[in-house]
Structures are given as structure tokens and as C-alpha cells.
Simulated scan of single mutants.
Amino acid sequence: MDSPHGAAVTAEGLGLKGPRGWTFRSVSIDAAPGSLVAIEGPSGTGRTCLLLALSGRMRPTEGHAEVAALQLPRKMAAVRRISALGPVPGVSDLDPALTVAEHLRERALLQRRFDASLRALLRPRAERAAEAQGRIDRALDAAGLDLAALPKQGRTAVRDLERLEELRLSVALALIGRPRLLAVDDADLKLSDAERAEAWALLRSIADGGTTVLAVCSQAPEGTTVVRTTAVQGAPAFAASVAPGDEAEAAQADTTAEAALTEAEPASEADPAPRPEPASDSDSGGKPESDSDADSDTDSRPGSGSRRASGSATDIRTNEEGAADALAETGRA
């Protein structure tokens, strides 16, 4: 099967304001299809929220962006259909009690159930099983995860995986849906120098295969399109660079945010902070996406990340957006 064609990602003046101030602001990106884009910066500077906004899972409040010529925030549901989440803590966590094989089977089942055509669902069971196994094998190969090398092979529980193995599994699960855009959070977290090099080699190989990759990190490698995040006087601010590997000529677009989200104290019970408005593809501001655009507000792509909580695409979307709203409200990005 042909490799997925990557999605071009562009943004200008993109910003997201939460209940306690700006999470990120003045973000500009211009990445070609099949690019490896590193969102670089310290924890607490809005990196995860930017990642979720560009993958259609968090609604920006100013500026505009396009993913594969789909406008954000107007076409958020459509962007979700062509994108997938790798590891994003609090949004697409793996279930530590499940085995590697169970995660893979569940994702392939969800993919077939919610993303396949009616004709595909009516094919003989053996043919459908073979097609699902083929997707799993291709995803494992692309993620560089060898089940035979694991302690108990496919029966290895997620809690027993090393950090790099867990990253590879999350990426493999996302690739089962053959997305055009892959979003990965904390790509270099808790990795040794050698493991970090392996992780970036993995993400680069996926980008070389045709899938655009967005990866949050603390330090971007050379040769990547970089979006830098910095904390200015305790408030999130962004500087975007669109020239791969050329830090000296990176165009700076730092903007001091109105209020710091990092280290913010929770609101008192007497004055609770309002929750961010649920993501919607409607320009009316408060209405959910219509059924004609992306099957209502359902993220039918299991590649966008799920847990075993439900098994329905609607609940997957609910879990993702609930976690995304929590990130915006607490500033854990």
C-alpha cells in the first residue's frame, strides 16, 4: 500500500487564550509535506497545547492555520481525520495493564470499525483479519518495534516496556491509521543521549516516508523545522523558525503573554475559572460541528489515540478534548 502523503502545515499569528491568560501566541509556521517539525522549549510554555491545536484537538482563539489546506479552527474535525496522536501525556496515554498485542489488536479493531467503508466491512472475516494484520505489521516496521525482542514478545505489558519501546509502540499505534500528520509529545523525555538519537532517527524516517511529523521536545536536533517556545517573565511566548537547521537566521516572533499559565494556582471555590469552550468546527462559536463536517464531532480515527475506557469513537473524542481543555486551564503544557 502506498505511503501516506504528508500534510503541509502553515500558521500565522496563531494563539490560544485560556481562562488565566495566553497559553501561546504569535506562532508562525510554514512546513512542507513530509517535514519533521520540532516544537522546542521548556515545559510549561504551551508546547502541548500548540501540538493539540495544530492536530485539530484544541481550538485556537486568534490567527489562522492550515493543515493539508484545511483551515483551523473551521475544519478541526477534518484535520482530526487525517492526523494521529502518538504519545501525549494526559490525552493518549497507553494502558499500563494491557499487553502490547492487546493494544495493537484494539487499535486495528477500532480502525476497521470506525474508518472503513461499508464494502470493506462486508468482506469475508479472513480477508478483514489479514488486512488488519498487514496494517499492524507495517506500523510496527515503520516504528522499529520488534515484538520478538520484547521480554514476553507480544504478551509484554506496557508497564514493563522501556521508555523508548513505549514511544515506539505509541507511534506504531498511531501509524495503523496511515495518518498524514503525526503529533508526538515529549519526544526526548527521560531518554539517554543514545536513545534520544534513536528517537529522532525514528521520527525522521517516518517523515522521510511521507508523513508530516510534529514533535515536542526540549532540544531540537539539526536539520529540522523548529518552533521555539520560551517563558518571558513567567508568561508563554513563541519564536518560530521555518528554516531547517539554521538557528542563526531564525525569524524571531516572541510576544509576551498577558498572564502566566505555568505555576498558576488553582482558582478558589468561590470564584471558579470558566472552562474553555468545547472545540467546534462551527463559526458560530458555541455550536458543535455539524454532521456534514467530519461525522458530527466524532473522531472516527483510532490513530488519534485512545484508551480502553469505551471503544466508541465519540468517547475517544470526548476523552481527548477533555484532557486538552484541562491542559489549557491548568497550563500543563
Rank of each mutant, 00 (worst) to 15 (best):
L50C: 11
T10A: 10
E40T: 10
D283F: 01
A172H: 07
G18D: 03
A239G: 15
P151E: 02
G134K: 04
P19R: 06
L214D: 03
G41S: 01
G21N: 10
A7K: 06
A323P: 04
A8M: 05
T298I: 14
G331M: 07
P288R: 12
D2Y: 03
I82N: 07
R74D: 12
A250W: 02
D115S: 15
D146T: 10
D2A: 13
D185C: 11
E277I: 13
E12S: 14
L72W: 08
T314Q: 12
A253T: 15
A101K: 02
G34S: 04
L145R: 11
A267I: 00
A142R: 12
D137A: 15
A130N: 08
T255Q: 13
E62L: 02
L121E: 11
D93G: 07
R168N: 07
P73E: 05
L181R: 07
A239F: 02
E269G: 05
E12K: 11
I206L: 05
V37F: 03
T10N: 10
A148Q: 12
Q153S: 09
A260L: 06
A53P: 01
E62P: 06
I316E: 00
R168Y: 07
L181N: 08
L36W: 05
A326D: 14
V158N: 04
G63W: 03
D30K: 13
P42G: 14
S218C: 03
Q133H: 13
R119K: 10
Q153M: 02
D185T: 09
P73R: 05
V79I: 12
R80D: 01
S218R: 15
D295C: 08
T314D: 11
A251V: 14
L175G: 07
T61G: 09
S83M: 04
R57Q: 13
R307A: 08
L140P: 00
V67P: 10
A197D: 13
L327P: 00
R307S: 15
S310E: 02
D208H: 08
T262L: 14
E265F: 13
D188G: 09
A143K: 04
A187E: 04
G56A: 07
Q153W: 00
P4K: 06
D291F: 10
R123G: 04
A11T: 03
A32F: 01
A324Y: 01
L169A: 09
A126F: 05
S290T: 14
A65L: 07
P272T: 08
L110R: 14
A149V: 08
E222R: 14
G234K: 09
P19Y: 01
R25Y: 00
S205H: 10
E258A: 14
Q219K: 11
E249C: 06
A84R: 05
A84N: 09
G18L: 04
G134L: 03
A11E: 02
A77Y: 01
L203Y: 08
I39W: 02
A237N: 05
I29K: 07
L145I: 11
V171K: 03
R20P: 00
L182K: 05
T298M: 02
P288A: 09
E165S: 05
L327F: 12
G154Q: 02
A231Y: 00
A235D: 00
A157C: 11
A108F: 09
E289F: 00
R112A: 15
H103C: 08
E127H: 07
Q252C: 12
S290G: 15
E102K: 09
D141R: 14
R20F: 09
H64V: 14
D293W: 05
